[in-house]
């Protein structure tokens, strides 16, 4: 009963935040697209049709309706590739963030809760990782792991771990000093119990916000890796790889081959950022009375 009231209250607050609602809308649509691409895509995303290379879309006239957003340099349907690419990109973003969240939680909770030399050591490692530009770090990891979509997820997950660990650690540092943690100790609770039942639930709010925001970053980085030819292997449809493949198309005047995947990336990132900012407001207890 209390849970349901909480969900209701959450929705009430969210309703007032128009931007967050737009973000949520975009993400919901994207998830639906990612779940049912075979119903939504008009064509096979992989099938080449060399006779139809770099054909424009609907804006050029009714006769182009079979490829609404045009075709790429191999004559593949761009709309279908974007739709199937949604699944790839969301999956990469999601898995990468799950990896970084799990690793970040473990590291952040350990160093925040126990402190001491382990904290110092972990945070120095994090500092070193911060010194690299994130995409460079991802490329380095990819170089070691080899190309491929799964490898890209792991690489991006590792790249996002330090920041997540920082977020968790700073939340834990505050919670650790609260009287209710002291009360648990006075009752004789073990560290495991205190962390699992009291520290984690109270640290989860900033983690959710940061995870949402970093999903956007992860999608962007996945696209960048794809653009560099390090992510999804052809012919898998992936937004970044699509952009990369359209470089020659641009010189041939086929702007649509690069523009639409670009818009798709922008929409996903924008939607996640709006939602993340909205959730930050939502989870701030000072703003919900």
């Amino acid at each position: 009963m209390a849970k349901r009231a909480q969900i209701f209250e959450t929705f009430q607050v969210l309703k007032k935040n128009k931007a967050a609602l737009v973000g949520l809308g975009i993400i919901v649509i994207m998830v639906i697209v990612a779940l049912f691409p075979h119903y939504l895509a008009p064509n096979d995303p992989i099938k080449r049709n060399l006779s139809q290379r770099l054909k424009p879309g609907l804006w050029a006239g009714r006769e182009y309706a079979s490829y609404p957003l045009g075709t790429d340099y191999l004559g593949r349907c761009i709309l279908s590739r974007i739709i199937w690419g949604t699944r790839t990109s969301l999956l990469v973003g999601f898995i990468a963030v799950v990896i970084s969240t799990v690793l970040g939680l473990v590291l952040g909770v350990f160093s925040g809760y126990f402190g001491g030399w382990m904290d110092t050591l972990l945070m120095r490692i994090v500092d070193v990782m911060f010194a690299f530009p994130s995409i460079l770090l991802a490329i380095t990891i990819m170089a070691a792991l080899g190309p491929g979509l799964e490898k890209a997820m792991i690489a991006i997950g590792i790249v996002y771990t330090p920041q997540m660990a920082r977020v968790v650690r700073s939340a834990v540092l505050v919670i650790r000093e609260m009287d209710y943690i002291e009360a648990e100790k006075a009752l004789g609770a073990s560290h495991g119990r205190i962390i699992w039942h009291h520290v984690l639930p109270n640290a989860i709010a900033p983690v959710i916000v940061y995870a949402t925001l970093s999903t956007a970053g992860a999608i962007l980085d996945a696209a960048a890796l794809g653009f560099l030819g390090l992510g999804a292997l052809p012919p898998t449809p992936e937004w970044g790889a699509m952009l990369s493949g359209s470089r020659q198309a641009l010189t041939a005047g086929a702007w649509w081959a690069a523009t639409f995947p670009g818009i798709a990336i922008m929409c996903a990132v924008l939607g996640l950022n709006l939602l993340g900012d909205g959730m930050r407001d939502l989870l701030d207890p000072r703003l919900r009375m």
Partner: peptide
């Protein structure tokens, strides 16, 4: 010492900080 823990308890000053906000 855990045996002694249940014999000795503490009541805190701040009734807001001493209860976990996410538990009933």
């Amino acid at each position: 010492f855990k045996k002694y823990r249940r014999r000795m308890q503490i009541v805190f000053q701040d009734p807001f900080a001493s209860l976990s906000p996410r538990k009933t």
